[in-house]
């Protein structure tokens, strides 16, 4: 009796697991194993011996500066995107603007947040490049040469401005529902208790938004950190950021050590992974008050 029921359970369990077997196999083959392969490869030398040498070799000036520029661009564009995106979302939710502005901006954000890659680079070259519209208009109308100020689209600043084109809309899309969730009563309750507008935002509004704000920022960070198409189309191989360095390494082993390439990839995973761990940790702290 008992064996019969237990074997019945066993069969059911097996069928249950068979149901997601295709997904598990797919995830293993095309996501998990390839990643683990690189991660483990980072700890072996060409002769197949275990070593930390590859990791140590990352600490050369070229590679370090590549990481540093990547981090700077990702951080700047995600913070910039978060800030501007926040204000836009705030304006359409709480700014008392006509409702067509809200729907218009949301529709546009849906499009712009997916407008990335090579065409985005083209758009900014046509705008802020040496013969771009804005550059030319500034020169012709105001006699102002943008490039004489040291500005260069193929630089940290240029890349940051370009990335923000899809970072801002992403933030708007995620923050708008979060802002909608702020109850009018919270604001009124704080106001009647004597709080100023600023005190309301500091003590109630922002702490409540904090998880979504932070989560999106870190998503934006990872997004920018791994992006290559825009940067590559914008600068060719001239800007030394990690994804481009890795691209060159994959193409032609510019580091002259395949396993150093693995270490480079590992470094990227560690940084995006860390940003996620940080996110999860901060979110748990910020969400003590949630169900």
């Amino acid at each position: 009796m008992s064996t019969a029921s237990s074997s019945f359970i066993d069969r059911r369990t097996i069928i249950d697991w068979l149901g997601i077997a295709p997904f598990l196999i797919f995830a293993l083959m095309f996501l998990i194993v390839p990643t683990l392969y690189l991660v483990s490869g980072a700890f072996f030398n060409a002769q197949g011996q275990f070593t930390f040498q590859n990791i140590a070799d990352l600490f050369t000036p070229t590679i370090m500066s590549a990481y540093w520029i990547s981090i700077k661009v990702s951080l700047a564009s995600s913070l910039g995107g978060a800030l501007i995106g926040f204000f836009l979302a705030w304006a359409i939710v709480l700014g008392g603007l006509p409702s067509w502005i809200r729907s218009g901006l949301l529709t546009f954000s849906g499009v712009a947040s997916n407008f990335a890659g090579v065409p985005l680079a083209f758009a900014f070259i046509a705008t802020l490049g040496r013969t771009g519209l804005v550059t030319v208009l500034m020169r012709d109308w105001f006699g102002f040469n943008l490039y004489s100020t040291g500005f260069n689209l193929l630089s940290f600043l240029g890349l940051t401005i370009t990335y923000m084109f899809f970072q801002i809309p992403l933030m708007v899309l995620i923050l708008t529902p979060a802002l909608d969730g702020l109850k009018k009563e919270w604001r009124e309750a704080s106001e009647i208790l004597g709080a100023s507008n600023w005190q309301y935002w500091r003590m109630i509004g922002l702490p409540i938004l904090w998880p979504s704000l932070l989560g999106t920022s870190l998503l934006l960070f990872a997004n920018a950190f791994g992006a290559i198409a825009t940067a590559y189309a914008l600068t060719g191989a001239s800007l030394n950021i990690v994804p481009i360095l890795l691209y060159a390494q994959i193409r032609g082993d510019v580091l002259h050590n395949p396993n150093l390439g693995y270490a480079l990839a590992l470094g990227m995973i560690v940084i995006t992974g860390l940003s996620n761990v940080l996110y999860i940790w901060l979110r748990m702290r910020a969400e003590r008050w949630q169900k």
Partner: peptide, 23 residues
């Protein structure tokens, strides 16, 4: 499953394809 489906947002595409090329 949700965690796995979100992984591609964290692991850069270039790293994934690098893994494919080697594997």
């Amino acid at each position: 499953v949700e965690f796995v489906t979100l992984m591609p947002l964290v692991i850069p595409a270039i790293v994934i394809v690098f893994g494919y090329l080697r594997l």
